[in-house]
């Protein structure tokens, strides 16, 4: 496996180190000479000082035989250009790009980048999940947000405590995935009773989500 990484910082260093440990061949392209000199001292990889969005430097990095390219700069237009050049001029089969502006996910996808790391979105999602300011969390958006998987923690003021699922008045577009009770996972049936501190996972259409939350938390 031959991988080209364009970008800098600690991430690129550790990624390259990781890939090398797996026996991959790694080339790194970076515009900063000092960074390149440092990296060359530490890694047994091809380090190229130059602009990764230019043909010459990609060529030097072995683009014509690379299996994958990772565009990890902090500049989205640069990342897009790098991936497209790699694809169109060198036919590198797999392109990966970080995007800094979360709105660019769709654009990059439409313009042919294979795999996109939407770091801003990932971090904000993780924070939303970890910082429990609320008893309602969106865990996952499926099919570009046409379907949501969310988690609701039933607090003591929830109106559904002690009720069976079949007694709840929920819209049809809401599916109970499972109930997490302590360490136990309960696959819900109509007869399942809801208890305090249950984590309820529900699958909903986004437009009905608020309604489901209201039923489960008693909120308006």
């Amino acid at each position: 496996m031959e991988i080209i990484i364009v970008g800098g910082g600690k991430i690129v260093y550790f990624l390259a180190k990781n890939f090398l440990a797996k026996g991959y061949q790694v080339s790194v392209i970076n515009k900063d000479q000092e960074y390149c000199i440092n990296l060359a001292k530490k890694l047994n990889a091809v380090i190229i000082h130059g602009d990764g969005s230019k043909l010459d430097y990609l060529e030097q990095a072995g683009a014509s035989r690379a299996d994958a390219i990772l565009a990890l700069t902090d500049n989205d237009p640069d990342n897009l250009y790098i991936c497209q050049l790699a694809q169109r001029e060198f036919e590198i089969p797999k392109t990966f790009s970080v995007i800094n502006n979360p709105d660019n996910e769709e654009i990059f996808k439409s313009l042919g980048v294979d795999t996109i790391f939407n770091t801003t979105k990932l971090i904000s999602l993780l924070i939303e999940q970890r910082v429990e300011t609320t008893d309602v969390n969106n865990l996952l958006s499926i099919e570009e947000g046409r379907l949501n998987l969310s988690q609701v923690i039933l607090k003591e003021d929830s109106p559904v405590l002690g009720k069976r699922l079949k007694e709840l008045h929920l819209p049809d577009e809401i599916v109970f995935g499972c109930v997490i009770r302590g360490e136990e996972v309960v696959i819900p049936k109509g007869s399942t009773k809801l208890l305090k501190n249950d984590k309820v996972l529900i699958i909903t259409l986004p437009e009905r989500q608020a309604e489901a939350f209201d039923v489960l938390t008693g909120g308006e």
Partner: peptide, 16 residues
Amino acid sequence: DDDNVNAMIAQIASEL
């Protein structure tokens, strides 16, 4: 004055 920026915008306009 940035070729990569131009490439991105031109493709958004033309392709998308």
